[in-house]
C-alpha cells in the first residue's frame, strides 16, 4: 500500500546547518504518527517540508506517493495544517474566521456544519459570534482544530495541537484524532507531550538534532505504546 506521507532520507539545510538529517519514515492511510522532540529537533521543519515551504536539500518528501516538489499545490490540497499557536484573526468572530479560511481553501460549508464542528471541539455557543481577540488561548486552539476538521482532507498535519487546551479538552481532542484515523484520515502530529503522543498515536518517533533516533509502534506493544518506555528513551536521548 502506498504510504500517505513519506520522508525518504530527508535532509534539510538552513543557514549551512542540517535541520533534518537523513530522516526516513512512512505513514500509512489511517495511521496516527507522532514526532516527539525538544526545541530545535526539527519537528516543525518536517511539517513545513511536507507543506512545500522548505525544499529538501537531499532526499524527498511524498504525499500520496507523489513528490511534494512535483506539485506542491496538489499536496497542500490533501492536507489540513494546524500550526503551533494557531493565530486566527482577532477582529473576526469564529464563524468569520472559519468561513475565510475555508473559502481560501476552496470549500463552501454551511452554518450548520460550522456549528457541528464547533460543537465537536466544545467551543461555547455564546462565544462564536464574539471577536476572537476576546478568546482564551484554549478557545482559539479549539477553533483552529474545528477548522482542521472542516477542511475534510485525507491528511492532517498538527503542530503542538494540544497547546493551550485544558486536560478535559486534551482528552476530547485525542478521542477526536483517533476517530478521524478510524475514518481513514492520516495524521502526523509533532509535540513535546510524551504522554499525549503515546495516548493517541499508532507510532511515535523520536527526533533529536534533526535525526530520527527512535521509533515505537503500538502494534509492537500490545496495542498501546508504553509511556514510561518512550519517556525514558526520550529523556535519555535528550540527555545524551
Amino acid at each position: 500500500m502506498t504510504p500517505t506521507l513519506e520522508a525518504r532520507s530527508l535532509v534539510v539545510m538552513r543557514d549551512g546547518a542540517a535541520v533534518l538529517n537523513d530522516v526516513s519514515f512512512a505513514i500509512a492511510p489511517g495511521e496516527v504518527f507522532a514526532l516527539l522532540g525538544g526545541n530545535g529537533a526539527g519537528k516543525s521543519t518536517t511539517l513545513l517540508t511536507f507543506l512545500g515551504f522548505l525544499q529538501p536539500t537531499a532526499g524527498d518528501v511524498l504525499v500520496a506517493g507523489r513528490s511534494v516538489g512535483d506539485d506542491v499545490e496538489a499536496a497542500r490540497a490533501k492536507i489540513a495544517y494546524l500550526p503551533e499557536a494557531a493565530s486566527l484573526y482577532g477582529h473576526l468572530n469564529a464563524y468569520e474566521n472559519l468561513g475565510y479560511f475555508l473559502d481560501l481553501a476552496g470549500r463552501k460549508v454551511s452554518r450548520a456544519a460550522l456549528d457541528a464542528a464547533l460543537d465537536q471541539v466544545a467551543l461555547p455557543t455564546e462565544a462564536r459570534q464574539r471577536r476572537m481577540q476576546s478568546y482564551s488561548k484554549g478557545m482559539r486552539q479549539k477553533t483552529a482544530i474545528a477548522l482542521a476538521l472542516l477542511r475534510d482532507t485525507p491528511i492532517l498535519l498538527l503542530d503542538e495541537p494540544t497547546s493551550g487546551l485544558d486536560p478535559v479538552a486534551i482528552d476530547e481532542f485525542h478521542a477526536m484524532v483517533q476517530a478521524l484515523a478510524a475514518a481513514g484520515r492520516t495524521v502526523l502530529m509533532v509535540t513535546h507531550d510524551v504522554y499525549g503522543a503515546c495516548q493517541v498515536a499508532d507510532r511515535v518517533g523520536l527526533l533529536r538534532g534533526g535525526r530520527l533516533v527512535g521509533s515505537f509502534a503500538a502494534s509492537d506493544a500490545g496495542g498501546r505504546i508504553d509511556t514510561e518506555t518512550v519517556h525514558a528513551a526520550f529523556a535519555a536521548r535528550e540527555a545524551a
Binding site: L51, E73, I79, P83, S87, Y89, L104, A105
Partner: peptide, 14 residues
C-alpha cells in the same frame, strides 16, 4: 509576525 503566513498559504494552495 502573527504566525499565520504559512497557514494561510497552505490553505490557499499557492
Amino acid at each position: 509576525v502573527a504566525g499565520r503566513h504559512d497557514w494561510l498559504v497552505a490553505s490557499a494552495g499557492t
